[in-house]
């Protein structure tokens, strides 16, 4: 599965900048804190993929 989400607040800020949205780092860090729940979901999916039997 494609999981293109950034791994750090700085990377999130860079991705948004690429999309034409310039966020101060402090604001990106605030979003990042809220995102911790979403990141647990991503990590669980990654764990499932890693545990899945390989063909």
């Amino acid at each position: 599965m494609d999981m293109p989400l950034p791994d750090t607040a700085e990377a999130l800020r860079a991705r948004l900048t690429e999309q034409g949205v310039a966020l101060p780092l402090e604001d990106a860090e605030a979003v990042w804190r809220d995102w911790q729940v979403i990141l647990t979901f991503r990590d669980a999916m990654r764990a499932d993929e890693a545990a899945a039997p390989r063909p």
């Binding site: 999981m3 989400l5 950034p6 999130l12 991705r15 948004l16 604001d27 979003v31 809220d34 995102w35």
Partner: peptide
């Protein structure tokens, strides 16, 4: 605004 903008990245 910032949270919604970031959430547009969710596939």
């Amino acid at each position: 605004r910032d949270r919604l903008t970031a959430a547009l990245l969710i596939p």
